[in-house]
């Protein structure tokens, strides 16, 4: 059994994982139908008269109107997704992007989560270093006795290990 769980078998597993992931990822062809593409684009546009909803989600008449314009552009097939969104922004003269820009003060919404994450990881790393230094090393006789007692209770119980 131990041989089964050896390093080469884990390597095989890693290779299989990468191979399967590559096969699945590379055959992704994007939206299948025009309707799927309309959905993908309208998910990125804010409904100008709604409470923060996307055009895809909203049932308001302004959202209906934008959906129709996007459908016309998609059917024409001459514009990219970004160009369609740009033309909607020109038409409605309003904030239509649901994703804040990565420039100016708007970039804070992107930067702050990363900063918080990095600080938290750095804090953890420093805590572990501190804890490692303060560890006492060898188990005492009482520690050993306690572990042996628990293992004697139930040696199969992983909670006791």
């Amino acid at each position: 059994m131990n041989r089964l769980k050896s390093k080469p078998v884990w390597m095989l597993m890693a290779v299989l994982f990468v191979a399967l992931l590559s096969v699945g990822t590379t055959r992704d062809k994007g939206p299948l139908t025009q309707s799927d593409r309309i959905d993908a684009i309208t998910k990125r546009i804010a409904c100008p008269t709604c409470d923060g909803e996307s055009v895809y989600v909203s049932r308001a008449s302004a959202a209906e109107s934008i959906r129709r314009q996007v459908a016309r552009d998609v059917a024409a097939g001459t514009k990219s997704d970004d160009q369609i969104i740009g033309s909607i922004a020109d038409t409605f003269k309003a904030q239509v992007l649901l994703v804040p820009r990565a420039t100016g003060i708007d970039s804070l919404v992107w930067v702050l989560p990363i900063a918080v994450f990095v600080s938290a990881v750095a804090g953890l790393w420093s805590a572990f270093r501190r804890w490692k230094k303060s560890n006492y090393g060898e188990a005492t006789a009482d520690d050993v006795a306690l572990v042996q007692k628990l293992l004697a209770d139930d040696p199969r119980d992983e909670d006791n290990v």
Binding site: K43, R44, A46, G52, E53, S54, V57, A94, Q95, L97, L98, V99, P100, I105, D106, L108, V109, L112, P113
Partner: peptide
């Protein structure tokens, strides 16, 4: 929390409407 209150922050600082939605 940040995504939810960010439009408020921007409105308070720059008196400008901003939508933070599903894609973010």
């Amino acid at each position: 929390l940040l995504g939810t209150v960010f439009p408020l922050i921007i409105e308070a600082l720059q008196n400008r409407q901003l939508v933070v939605g599903e894609p973010f």
